[in-house]
Amino acid sequence: MNNKNKSALNFGNLIVLGLSHKTAPVETRELFSLPGSQLSSFYERLCEAGVEEAVYVSTCNRVEIFMTAEDSESAVETIKRLMEFYTKLPHEQFMSSVYTRYGTDVVKHLLSVVSSLDSMVIGENEITGQIKESYKKAVESGTTGTIMNRLFHRAFTTAKRVRTETDISKNPLSIASIAVEQAKSIFHDISTKSALLIGAGEMGELILKYLVKENLHKIVLANRTSENAERICRDIDYNADIISLNKVDQALAEVDIVITSVTAPHHVITSADIKNIMFERGGKPVFLIDIAVPRNIDPSVTETENVYLYNVDNLKDIADNNMRGRMQ
């Protein structure tokens, strides 16, 4: 992008535009979560519109674009048009959920986000790594310069200080731990149950660790590649049943709990899948917890009797209760 090596930092040119769990439900947030294959073209469009530096951030809680531009009004209009392009929606349908901040307010916002103070689960450990990964992709795409580099490195340093100099990480919580807590709240004795975990990425690995602690009867781990699934099982010294994603439908018929956290452009579990497996299960209840954004599970699965579905926003009540408990 343009003018990356300015000797003087001008935070007045900073802009962030986004939406989060505080302003929009997961049904809206997932529309703005770009697949990796579209990220390069997205950055190219920003560059063509006069945006000088940019970092696109997407997590289960938020989608945000941090950028610098001489003409902030034009840059914001560009983002609105791109949002319309990628979602196929007029901006009037989503702008009420979108926030825009400028200058030093952007700095304060990023520090709060990276330090997990703006997370659905305050004090969670995953957000810093997720922002680092987004920043890394921007660096690799050549869309960062002096301002973004210094801003994000300062944010990472601040996040580290917050964790080491405060009690925010005392008894840490996470989306992964809360997903398992939800599963525990459903059953009187979770140790007698079996679970299917779909996705062996960073979030999947965390969920697996929490599930293993509960001594479940059986855990099935589904992933695109067996190598990564085998690696995380070795790392935590657990022998899960590892299957490929195309065998998920077979596993669905045998487990009590399903937790999904895989990155996919389409639903991994459809309404048709559930109808078929419920016949095989003889109507035995199945509990689905979908913490992916975009969502992995077709929300219409709940139209089938004895199918119970929770998404990442449904976990907020548990997060809020835990936060109240930590404050007492």
Results as ranks from 00 to 15, higher is better:
26 V>G: 05
94 F>T: 06
16 V>F: 06
11 F>R: 07
241 D>P: 09
133 E>A: 10
167 D>H: 08
47 C>Q: 06
280 E>T: 14
215 N>L: 11
267 H>D: 07
226 S>M: 14
327 M>D: 11
267 H>Y: 14
229 A>I: 01
45 R>N: 15
300 S>Y: 10
11 F>N: 07
198 I>T: 04
194 S>I: 02
276 N>V: 02
261 S>D: 03
80 K>Q: 11
2 N>A: 13
232 I>E: 01
42 F>D: 08
116 S>C: 02
298 D>F: 08
67 M>S: 05
3 N>V: 05
284 K>N: 08
87 T>F: 06
212 V>F: 00
258 V>S: 07
96 S>Q: 14
146 T>L: 12
187 F>T: 05
249 D>E: 15
75 A>D: 01
220 V>S: 07
177 S>Y: 02
322 N>F: 10
10 N>A: 03
234 R>M: 13
236 I>R: 07
284 K>D: 10
100 T>G: 07
237 D>W: 01
228 N>A: 04
129 G>Y: 06
302 T>P: 04
227 E>C: 05
48 E>W: 01
327 M>A: 13
72 S>M: 15
325 G>Q: 13
219 I>R: 03
91 H>K: 14
266 H>Q: 14
286 V>T: 07
326 R>L: 06
328 Q>A: 15
65 I>H: 03
102 Y>W: 09
186 I>R: 08
148 M>V: 05
137 K>A: 14
163 R>K: 13
221 L>N: 01
17 L>Q: 07
109 H>I: 03
203 M>R: 01
260 T>C: 04
183 A>K: 00
42 F>I: 08
226 S>H: 07
157 T>Q: 14
105 D>A: 15
98 V>L: 09
238 Y>N: 01
299 P>E: 09
160 K>E: 09
94 F>Q: 03
202 E>P: 02
263 T>W: 11
1 M>W: 05
127 I>C: 06
238 Y>C: 10
225 T>R: 11
152 F>R: 02
